[in-house]
Design a protein around this nucleic acid. Structure first.
Lengths: 226, 226
DNA sequence: GTGAACTGACCGCACGTACGGGCAAAGTGT
DNA sequence: ACACTTTGCCCGTACGTGCGGTCAGTTCAC
């Protein structure tokens, strides 16, 4: 009756490990606890993933791969720089609400992508994402949507706000995720030099940008799986 | 010759431990490495600090205490909400440049202030700092300096940008610390709804705000040690 | 003499992971 | 249909290592 499932227990191991990393951090997340929670042996985890490092690398890579694909899908529907930035902010907040464990695990352990053997692939994906954002900021500056400024610095300022969310964000908190995203977006877009009405329109949780983000994250729009 | 100094080796232990936490994170920083680097025994560290937890708590508390005192000293000289926010940004960047180890150690381990026994005091100081910022944002909103918005959310957006700096900031990098601070500040102040000339004036690295920050951090202005 | 600073040996434990074996499903030949 | 082999999932145990913390004892300043 309890035969071996086709996919095996691999997915649930990954999911539980991710949750433990999100809650306690990579160093304190350990095979023993994960195995105990799933009622399996530590050996099973090793069988599927080899080492702890590789398991984290897998979490980071799959996370970044999905985020990149979604970004491209959103950009295909939103040509304006302001709208694209707003979409990334809305999507960023949605990730924290929809997949809190994976998002927190990613954000609190991003630093391990640097100079850690086996993490080159994940780091490459992350660099690609950053370049994407820097490109949008530069485009917006070139076409006059934003005031002149250092695109790289602006991207870091933006990433900081979003990556820090894991320390305080509560999806069931006082403000709904879309409201948090709207506040963040409008402050950021105004800061980049967008005029008030345009910033509000792009950030609007009931507007077109939010709708596109919703469609992409719900899978309504095809997301290319490279 | 190598007599027992009165103050003991306490300060250098704390400094080295802080640097190790900054470089490798709290979990991977260990007594053995610190002791070896200082040419002393692990027992000495235990003698002075008791436990590893307490050592981190001490780092966090002294860091926050200094930052709070400086914030109060700066506020005494800068009555305007926009100038105060600009000063906090300038100071935040300066911390990363002047005391990189302590700042990084603090920022990457802030999360341990939550629900960790022995960290109540440090957490209290941090809450106090956050309330200070929220207060400034609320004041600025009340007197029309900033457009209406959620002060708490805005403070989190601001903290995020600054706390994330430890992952990328290089004091000897392409842009000087003051330039980074100016870019950050102008983007933030515009985002809060300040008009362009006022935002630029407050963020100006050669302006009054930056001068006050410089004076306070250089100890020119008396900083109350509560 | 008293107490703080410091040493070095040692303990206990948590954790990553290597290894050997068991067992069910899928594949293969007749 | 049936026996045989192969394959992949999973378990249990055991090992090595690294680390936080203990403790008895020594040295030195006052």
């Amino acid at each position: 009756m309890t035969g071996h499932a086709r996919g095996g227990r691999r997915p649930e191991i990954l999911e539980t490990f991710t949750r433990h990393v999100a809650q306690h951090g990579y160093d304190r997340a350990n095979f023993g606890d994960v195995a105990a929670e799933l009622g399996m042996s530590k050996g099973t985890i090793v069988h599927h993933f080899g080492t702890k490092d590789r398991m984290l690398a897998e979490v980071q890579e799959s996370y970044m791969r999905r985020r990149l694909a979604e970004a491209h899908a959103m950009f295909a529907r939103l040509p304006g720089a302001g709208e694209r930035i707003a979409a990334l902010v809305h999507a960023g907040v949605r990730y924290s609400a929809d997949e809190p464990a994976t998002t927190v695990a990613f954000q609190r352990e991003v630093v391990r992508l640097v100079d850690r053997p086996g993490m080159e692939s994940a780091r490459g994906l992350r660099d690609e994402y950053r370049d994407l954002v820097v490109g949008v900021l530069a485009d917006g500056e070139a076409d006059g949507t934003f005031l002149p400024g250092d695109a790289r610095l602006r991207s870091l300022q933006m990433f900081g706000s979003l990556h820090w969310m894991w320390t305080w964000f509560d999806p069931a908190g006082r403000l709904a995720p879309a409201e948090v995203a709207a506040e963040f977006a409008v402050t950021l877009l105004r800061g980049l030099g967008m005029d008030e009405p345009a910033a509000r329109a792009a950030a609007d949780p009931a507007g077109e940008v939010a709708a596109v983000v919703g469609d992409v994250l719900a899978g309504v729009v095809a997301v290319s799986r490279s």
